[in-house]
């Protein structure tokens, strides 16, 4: 989805891509959550539309806005249907990732672990952010008061505690990991083993095929914007 979307800037291509994504949303049962992230993306997509409208044509503005939606949907599909744990496990099985991780960080599973931890911490940080906002509002802070500069300054009492909490937590996490002997020995096994099934191979095949076809079209035809 991503590569064809980035290769072409055509309204038709985007519509086709978007339509092909819709059934996947329902198969993955994430349509409702996708709608929510779509709502969050309204501002950005209207910004993209306006900017491109003034710098290009109406059609390129529509195409680029749709491209944003295609990307948003693709990312939503991926992250809403794939649990971060599985993703971490999968990364850990990729030889290249392990090789890179060993080169950079000294341990083969450090990189995939870093990724899993980063993803894991997002919801925790969101809870902390809410608590910090509540605590500062209880001290009379009004986030939406004053002019633009003042409003930005209003966020200082939110950001500093949040940053400190994040740093403190990462230090604690490091200590906890070290006290448990991370990264352990070579050849660590995992409780859940990921296996590629026939369906997975089919999806990989279709994706690679679609990418190949779109690259071929890209080099042999000029696809009109509209």
């Amino acid at each position: 989805m991503l590569i064809p979307a980035l290769l072409f800037a055509s309204v038709w291509v985007m519509v086709i891509l978007l339509l092909s994504q819709l059934p996947l949303l329902f198969i993955g049962r994430v349509a409702r959550r996708w709608a929510l992230s779509l709502r969050a993306g309204v501002f950005l997509s209207s910004l993209i539309f306006v900017v491109n409208f003034f710098t290009g044509s109406v059609f390129s503005a529509i195409a680029l806005t749709l491209r944003f939606l295609v990307l948003l949907t693709a990312f939503s599909l991926f992250f809403m249907t794939t649990s971060p744990d599985d993703l971490g496990l999968a990364l850990d099985r990729i030889g290249a990732v392990r090789w890179l991780s060993r080169k950079w960080l000294g341990y083969p599973n450090a990189l995939s672990f870093t990724f899993t931890t980063a993803v894991r911490l997002v919801p925790t940080l969101a809870v902390d952010a809410q608590t910090v906002v509540d605590a500062q509002r209880s001290r009379g802070l009004e986030l939406d008061r004053g002019n633009l500069l003042r409003r930005i300054r209003n966020y200082i009492p939110i950001l500093i505690p949040l940053l400190l909490i994040a740093i403190r937590r990462s230090l604690e996490l490091a200590e906890a990991l070290e006290s448990r002997g991370f990264p352990g020995k070579e050849g660590r096994t995992s409780l859940f083993q990921l296996k590629l099934k026939r369906g997975d191979y089919a999806i990989i095949g279709i994706s690679v095929g679609a990418i190949a076809v779109s690259i071929w079209i890209f080099f042999h035809y000029r696809v009109p914007v509209f």
């Binding site: 608590t131 910090v132 605590a135 001290r139 009379g140």
Partner: peptide, 14 residues
Amino acid sequence: ARKVGLVFQNPDHL
């Protein structure tokens, strides 16, 4: 908040 002062559990949050 002027009348009702709420002190949160964890000081690091404020």
